[in-house]
């Protein structure tokens, strides 16, 4: 078997991390996690994952976005240049709270993430999306 794909989960809710980690690990993925944006970025550099699962609302309502922008930044000398093209799966419950609907079609230009998944996490949905993002990448 080829080396397991590595997934980085950045989420401040340990129960949500667990709910994603469990099915992913049972399907042979290697999972690392971080509980804040800053920790997530340093783990990214250290672990070089194949995919990031990013929570939209961490401590501030914009932390998730800031992490995504930092990774996608094309500023010269960006510390994350290596990961600019990494698939990002954004976890959110926000589109049910706010009127704005986040989706690939409407926000691709503004939100540099590849795919969205909603809370509560449905394991089958999560596994499907992760698999298809990794195939494309």
């Amino acid at each position: 078997m080829a080396t397991a794909k590595k997934i980085l989960i950045i989420d401040d809710d340990p129960d949500i991390v667990e709910a994603m980690k469990m099915p992913l690990e049972s399907h042979g993925y290697e999972v690392v996690s971080a509980s804040s944006g800053q920790e997530g970025l340093s783990t990214l550099v250290k672990e070089s994952p194949d995919l990031i699962i990013l929570d939209v609302m961490m401590e501030s309502t914009t932390e998730g976005f800031q992490v995504a922008y930092a990774i996608r930044s094309d500023a010269p000398g960006s510390a994350y240049a290596k990961f600019r093209k990494i698939p990002i799966l954004m976890v959110t419950a926000i589109n049910q709270v706010m009127k704005t609907k986040f989706s690939k079609e409407t926000d691709a230009e503004y939100l540099p993430v590849t795919e969205f998944i909603e809370k509560p996490i449905q394991p089958a949905d999560l596994l499907n999306k992760v698999a298809s993002l990794l195939v494309k990448a």
């Binding site: 129960d15 509560p120 996490i121």
Partner: peptide, 21 residues
């Protein structure tokens, strides 16, 4: 948001159990 976060976590964890993971 504060009400939703724990509900989301609860539902996610219960989902794992229900779906046999």
């Amino acid at each position: 948001h504060e009400l939703r976060a724990p509900l989301g976590a609860v539902q996610s964890l219960l989902g794992l159990i229900l779906e046999g993971y």
